[in-house]
């Protein structure tokens, strides 16, 4: 073992022990936690509360209502970080174009694997759409559904070939278009009530979902006894589109062969 290794291990042990000392003194509250915090009780109480109509979300799921209503601006900025990471990845591959090779029958794994994958090419998007559209009722939402849908992209690249998606109409630029539609949808949903309020001449807030005391507008929360959760439904749908197609772009770029990229990025 080298001298540098001993120094690194010793400093890590000191760091971990000091962190453990801080938590043992109560830096994170009592561990193991017996009861939840007061703010958590408020969030749980206001998730679907018909007795305080000016504070509630009218959705059955507390996590989704925190993500897109109580702390919606946090999520908006996290979506901005996601957007920046994807754009930076695309910028590294500027000038590289995907080629089309028509014959995909001979590439890829065996016919058994291909047949099984063809079934899951339909099943997995169905599951992810269900997760996205029921996000305000059951566990799930836009982020989860987008990640599940991306598994299909990885499967099709590995099992068939990297030409499978562009030949069937999902090229990089089309995925970029769909991702932009998703982000535009999020932006429009967050200011929709504000725009309507300007026309009608009443008060409204950014990221408003249900009516507040001084802002009478609200998204529809209950249509024909079906709980819609107001703006949560739209946010989940658009975030699903943005996340799924954003990751699609990145995996399409990762699958381009290295010689081609080297020729463009090193010379040009």
């Amino acid at each position: 073992m080298k001298k540098a290794d001993v120094f690194v291990i010793a400093s890590i042990i000191v760091f971990i022990l000091s962190l453990a000392y801080i938590t043992a003194l109560g830096g994170l509250g009592p561990l193991p936690p017996i009861n939840v915090r007061r703010i958590a009780i408020n969030y749980l109480n206001l998730t679907y509360n018909t007795f305080t109509p000016y504070l509630t979300v009218f959705a059955l799921e507390s996590v989704t209502s925190i993500v897109w209503d109580f702390r919606g601006l946090d999520t908006l900025y996290e979506t901005a970080v996601f957007y920046a990471a994807i754009i930076a990845s695309i910028a590294l591959y500027r000038g590289v174009y995907m080629d089309f090779k028509k014959n995909t029958e001979k590439t890829g794994l065996s016919p058994i694997a291909k047949t099984v994958t063809r079934i899951s090419l339909i099943l997995i998007p169905t599951v992810s759409a269900s997760v996205a559209l029921h996000g305000h009722l059951t566990p799930g939402g836009g982020f989860q559904a987008g990640s599940i849908a991306t598994v299909v992209i990885v499967l099709s690249i590995i099992i068939f070939s990297r030409y499978f998606l562009p030949i069937h109409g999902l090229s990089k630029n089309k995925a970029l278009l769909f991702r932009s539609i998703g982000l535009l949808g999020i932006a429009i949903t967050s200011i929709a009530l504000l725009l309507i309020a300007i026309v009608l001449g009443v008060n409204a807030y950014i990221f408003q979902n249900q009516a507040k005391i001084d802002a009478p507008l609200s998204f529809p929360s209950l249509v024909d006894n079906y709980i819609l959760g107001g703006s949560l439904l739209f946010f989940n749908l658009f975030e699903f589109i943005a996340v799924a197609f954003g990751f699609t772009i990145v995996f399409l770029l990762l699958s381009i062969s290295e010689e081609k990229v080297k020729k463009v990025t090193m010379d040009g």
Binding site: V67, E78, V81, F82, I86, S89, F143, G146, F247
Partner: peptide, 26 residues
């Protein structure tokens, strides 16, 4: 019910972490 606030924060952190991991991979 358990506390939903850490779950909401972790949920977004996982997806953003995947995007940042992809960028580091590039």
């Amino acid at each position: 019910a358990v506390d939903p606030l850490p779950q909401a924060l972790v949920l977004t952190a996982v997806v953003i972490g995947l995007a940042v991991t992809l960028f580091i991979a590039f």
